[in-house]
């Protein structure tokens, strides 16, 4: 196999290395316990929104949550559309 490999060289445009990398990232996350991660993210999302709501009136539909799971670092992105006139919700 390695003979074949060195013969043809490892073409960077081939799809197998992509498959391998995708699997490694995915499984690294799945192995840490299924469901736990989404629980944590749900909690984070709820609590972060709670804190923001204390200061700004937030429309639930204008909140976007994105997740990008990387090899060593995951990115949790929370996009909140803030109205032009920032009206603190606590004070009338």
């Amino acid at each position: 196999m390695s003979l074949f490999g060195s013969f043809f060289g490892r073409n960077t445009k081939t799809s197998a290395p992509v498959a391998r990398d995708r699997l490694q990232i995915l499984l690294a996350h799945e192995r840490t316990g299924n469901g736990n991660e989404s629980d944590l993210l749900n909690k984070l999302q709820a609590e972060i929104l709670e804190v923001i709501k204390r200061h700004i009136a937030v429309d639930q539909d204008k909140v976007q949550v994105k997740l990008d799971r990387g090899n060593s670092v995951s990115m949790l992105e929370i996009d909140i559309e803030v109205p032009q006139q920032m009206r603190p919700s606590g004070q009338p």
Partner: peptide, 19 residues
């Protein structure tokens, strides 16, 4: 399929074993 794996079109044995 050894030929496809050699061409990088299929996961190699080492890839699957490592994972």
């Amino acid at each position: 399929d050894p030929a496809r794996a050699a061409r990088g079109e299929m996961l190699r044995i080492e890839d699957v074993l490592e994972i």
